[in-house]
Design a protein around this nucleic acid. Structure first.
Lengths: 168, 168
DNA sequence: ATATAGTTGACCGTAACAGTAGGTTATTTG
DNA sequence: CAAATAACCTACTGTTACGGTCAACTATAT
């Protein structure tokens, strides 16, 4: 399991979707500006997330992405696996540094570590992250963090019931 | 905490040292052949390990490296920290993707993961790995894994009491 | 004196990451 | 229908780190 900003970006973007998922599809342009992530880069990441069935896409005006399952069924491990393709680059995949047919002396060490990381990231779902985030916002009394930062007129399409940009 | 083959190589090499540490300094040339790791690469790694005081070096014929502390006082985390310099590249170090002065929504997620990885790797010492390895060898009845694979004549210097190449 | 072996620094090819740019296709709205 | 929107796709860039090589140097033991 590899850990890079790629995976972090993906989790952050999925969080953004989760927090405003009930307003219909979320456009990447919005995610890009709120989370300060390059739009084209997001498009690449969401291409992968879509191929892994973690999100559904809606094309055309008012379109965007929706999370494809209940938030409690999407774990951080799922997201990272989707974008950071080679899941277990951490281990010598049988060959490579493993001597002869014996497993290398440290083989178990790495596979155990891998499992521990995977266990943790699998234990955290988007629902958990959303709950944690809302808790934080409530205690701060501030809705600023997730405000819409778009500069232009960019009128929200359709479902903008302007339920306040705050939360779920 | 980054995980790469660099760290794996370093741990493997330290294991090699640990397993024959009582025969005096261990030359990198031997480690290189036994563990199939490029000598020059090992030299780089051990330069770092030495600067982090994890090993002591002895120059000249019969020289090599010794582990600088009791095996139980050297953890895998120590080794990885020494060679994979930027310890916590996993987190946004305060800036970078963290929005405004607020910590980004996923900040805690990553720092918790980091702590979990660190906890595990800190809980495993070279003494543990050595014990595990000897157990494995005993049950296999095979001493082949750690045999000296040098091809040339390369006579062992000094302390070669030929205590059998097997173990501690 | 000579061979050994650690020490240092420069260098190289590859691959992955992070990001950019341009285009195409589908869908909604006026 | 036409125009705007936004997903989709491909190719390309610049940077970084990894994995590894090479050559020169210094200290030490025989």
């Amino acid at each position: 399991m590899r850990l890079t900003t790629k995976g972090r970006f993906a989790v952050t973007a999925m969080m953004d979707l989760a927090l405003r998922g009930d307003e219909g599809p979320v456009a990447l342009a919005g995610v890009s500006e709120r989370q300060r992530i390059s739009l084209s880069y997001l498009e690449q990441l969401f291409g992968k997330l879509r191929r892994f069935k973690l999100v559904d896409s809606v094309r055309g005006p008012g379109g965007g992405y929706c999370i494809a399952r209940p938030l409690s069924m999407v774990t951080v491990a799922d997201i990272i696996r989707a974008v950071d393709e080679p899941l277990d680059a951490t281990q010598c995949g049988g060959r490579e540094n493993c001597i002869d047919e014996h497993r290398c002396m440290t083989h178990e060490l790495w596979s155990t570590l891998n499992a521990k990381m995977y266990d943790y990231l699998s234990s955290v779902s988007l629902a958990d992250l959303v709950a944690r985030q809302q808790e934080k916002e409530a205690s701060l009394g501030a809705a600023t963090v997730l405000e819409d930062r778009r500069i232009g007129p960019h009128p929200r399409p359709r479902n903008t019931r302007d339920k306040a940009a705050v939360a779920l």
